[in-house]
Every structure is written in C-alpha cells, then in structure tokens.
Amino acid sequence: MEIDFNKNGDGLVPAIIQDATTKNVLMLGYMNLEAYEKTMATKKVTFYSRSKKRLWTKGEESGNFLNLVDIKNDCDSDTLLVFVNPVGPTCHTGTDTCWAGKNTQSFGFLSELESIIESRKENQNDEKSYVASLFRKGINKVAQKVGEEAVEVVIEAKDDNEELFLNESADLLFHYLILLQAKGYKLSDVVNVLKSRS
C-alpha cells in the first residue's frame, strides 16, 4: 500500500478510526510513516501526536488499546481508514467516541423500528397502538402472531407473487422484533448468537 505522507508537507496523514464491528467512527488521529509501521508491527494503533511531537500508542497509559483489524488507503493515497476492535472507551474523556456517542451496533432502519416497538412496550396504555395492544395481550398472543406470519411467508414462497411474499416477510420480521422485546431481547442478541456460530 502506497501512502503519500508528504502530500501536506508535514509527513502526516489523517487516520480515521472505525470500529470493525459496529462501523461507528471512533476518532481521528494522524500517522507518519513510523507510526504506521509500528501499528502494522504491533497490531495496536499508534499515532503521531502533534502536541507531544512523538509517537503514542492509543491505550499506552489507559489500557484502552485500539487493536488493529485492517487499514485501507483512500483514492488519493493521503487518508487512512483504520478498522479496529477497541478495548474500552476511545476518547480520553471516557466516552466511547470522540463525539461523545455510544459505540453500539446499529442495524439502520431496523434499529429505529426496535426503538418504536420499545416505546410501545413501555406505553401499553396507548389504545391506538397495534403494538401496544399485542403487549397487553401477553406473550402467547405475540408468539401466535409470529407463527401465523411464518406460515403465511411459507405459503407465499411457494407462489410467484413477489409483492405478497415480500409483504408477508415484512410482517414476519416486524412481529419477530416484537416477540424479541416481549422476551426481553433485541436483534443484537440474535446477531451475537449467529456470530458465535460463524
């Protein structure tokens, strides 16, 4: 990998640090050639500190290392994207990221949907909410709905109507997310089981 450390005239390139699992951006640092080589050799991310004027390995004092997974160079060969498995919080302030964000796994729209389902679970008195009504009826009704939707997916899978198949699949996934929360779990718990099997 060719990295243009001299493009800006200071021998440094930005290094964007991203969690290899959650894909969240954790921090931004700078590397010179020596920091890059040390990172590759030790598999612990090392930067060049512009304030201290020396190399520093993230976690050398706190123990919150950034264990290297992979490094990619951008199209201009002057910015690095560094994939890591962080040990503990990344920011010196004690937060998960340098933007004070939580480094939690997100599944995009499905995570938004989980949040809505969770709010309905917490507010089961909402008479207008279908989800709240399912929670009020209890685990047996929620599980029954998942079973019904699963059967409908199987039926539609055997036919050629793609729209009906996708709609029934969406219904199944939606009700499964409700069942997970009725049992006290989230999608991430299922993903962790799948990861442990891979």
Results as ranks from 00 to 15, higher is better:
residue 194 L to K: 03
residue 38 K to H: 06
residue 126 D to K: 14
residue 94 G to L: 05
residue 191 V to D: 08
residue 147 G to R: 12
residue 119 S to G: 07
residue 175 H to Y: 15
residue 79 T to H: 01
residue 47 F to Y: 15
residue 61 E to T: 15
residue 170 A to T: 11
residue 194 L to A: 10
residue 101 G to P: 00
residue 190 V to H: 02
residue 151 V to H: 13
residue 165 F to Y: 13
residue 174 F to H: 13
residue 155 I to K: 12
residue 62 S to M: 04
residue 13 V to E: 05
residue 106 S to V: 11
residue 54 R to G: 08
residue 12 L to F: 05
residue 93 T to Q: 05
residue 83 F to C: 09
residue 3 I to W: 06
residue 55 L to E: 06
residue 147 G to Y: 13
residue 5 F to I: 01
residue 44 K to I: 08
residue 196 S to W: 12
residue 41 A to K: 15
residue 42 T to S: 15
residue 27 M to T: 07
residue 72 K to C: 08
residue 107 F to R: 00
residue 18 Q to E: 13
residue 41 A to E: 15
residue 65 F to R: 02
residue 18 Q to G: 08
residue 8 N to S: 13
residue 170 A to S: 13
residue 193 V to K: 12
residue 192 N to D: 15
residue 185 Y to S: 01
residue 101 G to E: 14
residue 156 E to S: 15
residue 79 T to Q: 13
residue 103 N to L: 01
residue 164 L to F: 11
residue 32 N to D: 11
residue 17 I to F: 05
residue 26 L to D: 00
residue 187 L to N: 00
residue 96 D to K: 00
residue 108 G to Q: 08
residue 117 I to Y: 05
residue 18 Q to H: 09
residue 118 E to G: 07
residue 95 T to C: 06
residue 167 N to F: 03
residue 134 L to S: 03
residue 24 N to E: 12
residue 188 S to G: 08
residue 155 I to T: 10
residue 32 N to H: 01
residue 197 R to T: 09
residue 9 G to K: 05
residue 92 H to W: 07
residue 49 S to D: 02
residue 175 H to K: 11
residue 162 E to F: 11
residue 20 A to H: 14
residue 97 T to Q: 04
residue 102 K to T: 04
residue 101 G to K: 11
residue 76 D to E: 14
residue 81 L to C: 10
residue 90 T to Y: 07
residue 11 G to T: 04
residue 118 E to I: 09
residue 152 E to R: 02
residue 186 K to D: 03
residue 46 T to L: 00
residue 81 L to N: 10
residue 133 S to D: 15
residue 79 T to S: 15
residue 55 L to G: 03
residue 114 E to R: 05
residue 72 K to P: 11
residue 174 F to G: 08
residue 99 W to Q: 08
residue 130 Y to G: 08
residue 112 E to K: 13
residue 131 V to C: 11
residue 92 H to L: 10
residue 37 E to T: 09
residue 197 R to V: 10
residue 6 N to E: 14
residue 130 Y to N: 09
residue 57 T to W: 03
residue 192 N to R: 12
residue 35 A to N: 03
residue 6 N to Q: 13
residue 195 K to S: 11
residue 192 N to V: 02
residue 173 L to A: 14
residue 174 F to V: 05
residue 84 V to L: 09
residue 113 L to T: 08
residue 184 G to V: 03
residue 137 K to Y: 04
residue 186 K to G: 00
residue 150 A to Y: 14
residue 105 Q to R: 12
residue 105 Q to W: 03
residue 26 L to V: 01
residue 169 S to P: 02
residue 139 I to W: 07
residue 5 F to L: 02
residue 2 E to D: 10
residue 183 K to H: 12
residue 99 W to A: 08
residue 152 E to C: 04
residue 172 L to P: 07
residue 166 L to N: 10
residue 5 F to V: 00
residue 148 E to L: 10
residue 30 Y to W: 15
residue 6 N to V: 06
residue 50 R to D: 07
residue 89 P to R: 00
residue 127 E to P: 07
residue 28 L to H: 06
residue 161 N to Q: 05
residue 148 E to G: 06
residue 102 K to I: 03
residue 58 K to Q: 07
residue 77 S to G: 03
residue 125 N to C: 10
residue 86 P to K: 06
residue 70 D to E: 15
